[in-house]
Design a protein around this nucleic acid. Structure first.
Lengths: 238, 238
DNA sequence: CTAAAATGTGACAGAAATGTCACTATTCTG
DNA sequence: CAGAATAGTGACATTTCTGTCACATTTTAG
């Protein structure tokens, strides 16, 4: 077994704070560290960019008014960077900057906070964004009458119980869940799951439907995949 | 064969942005393109109508305050058009326009967002509406230096060429792409791919790393998965 | 430089998945 | 109702995937 450093289940997140007011910056860093985050600090846009060459933060907090460039410009630069482009950014603005703030937001920040902001509020938002970007909590779920599919995690739950499917069955069910109550033609299913230029019999769809139904049968939902004679299949709740 | 939804998942969705503020418009377009949408832009109501003669967008984002007509008027016109009548419309309004906004909604917008709005929020709503109207989501892509992963479609492209991986390799690469330049401990990889309560040797990770590297070798990128001795692995571009 | 530790790698056996076929059952048409 | 069309289903051979092992190679510590 390998020796593990602190990163693992309790993997720490790196937060970069870009704020020129030292008092605020240190205060934020202190709070964040107390909450278990790793913090990196920058007092200006250029310092921030320097930091970004060293670390890949999981989230950046940027003050709107920086001495050398506006927070917006900094965001633009970050968003242009191929590596860190997608990092969530939270913008801090003073109340007086309200109207500009709007623009800043629209230009690429994921969230904003008006100063003075409570640390609690900031923590909450930081956690929310980290969850979202890491896909830990808010992985995208498709739900239909008790069938919950977490497409990212490749997991399905029916009425609370777990259901495991092969990849093809999974894709098939996903297609149905994305189109509940809609008639899906065989050809459409083929195109969608096997791609447009593959040579697969269309009866193959039937067999996979069968397999999916068998899997659903364990949860008494095999009737949910309905045959539409001459055309294809449909997912209904019944 | 039957009538069926005409769009496949691998097809990009067209989004029309109607917004007179150039900064906001371009930022939105940038974000949307980054998310894999095709964008079309209009700075005024008339430009929008012109665009609509050319393309049939899958969704339209309209700013309430346009120079030549109100967003509401534009919506009215769109809703009168026989061809595009049904397209989902998301309206953007400033907070001051609150009461009017409600009216706008009643008159044909499917959703609205109050500025300042976060890009995440906007994306989420756009996706939601596209799902509803098409049943399909624009696939969400993860990209890192030429490696493009379409997690939904389960497809990977390296420098344009296709790459096929087993499910485990796929998940592994996905984890790396979500954490480029970050050290991923074996335990972390295990937890993330096999789950926390499974009994898999941690050396198994090594073998899958090997397999992933072999797959990447075909594209001369096997060096991108770097070993961090004693801890785990890291994805770098080099 | 050497021994120990860690990682790379090929091989393997069992499991799972896949597409097709043949046959059966059901539904539709006239 | 009979024949035709369509869908359900079990079986199958093949391929792919998976986790583990044993041994090779590399790196590190002393």
């Amino acid at each position: 077994m390998a020796t593990l450093p602190e990163k693992s289940a309790s993997m720490q997140n790196n937060i970069l704070i870009v704020e020129d007011d030292m008092a605020i910056r240190e205060m934020m860093a202190f709070s964040l560290r107390r909450e278990g985050f790793d913090t990196f600090k920058a007092a200006s846009g250029h310092e921030a960019l320097e930091q970004l060459n060293q670390v890949n933060p999981d989230l950046i907090v940027i003050d709107w008014g920086l001495p050398d460039m506006s927070g917006i410009d900094l965001i633009d630069m970050i968003r242009r960077d191929e590596v860190i482009r997608e990092v969530p950014i939270i913008m801090l603005t003073a109340r007086a900057e309200e109207s500009d703030k709007v623009k800043g937001l629209e230009r690429g920040a994921d969230d904003y906070l008006t100063k003075p902001a409570s640390m609690l509020e900031l923590m909450a938002r930081i956690r929310a964004h980290l969850r979202r970007s890491h896909g830990f909590e808010a992985s995208h779920q498709i739900e239909y009458k008790g069938i919950v599919m977490d497409a990212d995690a490749h997991e399905i739950t029916i009425d609370g119980e777990n259901l495991s499917l092969s990849l093809t069955e999974f894709k098939l069910l996903k297609l149905f869940l994305q189109n509940p109550n809609k008639l899906l033609a065989r050809e459409h299913i083929l195109n969608h799951i096997w791609g447009r230029n593959t040579f697969v019999e269309d009866r193959t769809v039937d067999v996979h439907i069968l397999r999916l139904r068998k899997a659903l049968k364990k949860h008494n939902k095999e009737k949910w995949v309905q045959t539409v004679r001459g055309v294809g299949y449909k997912l209904v709740s019944q």
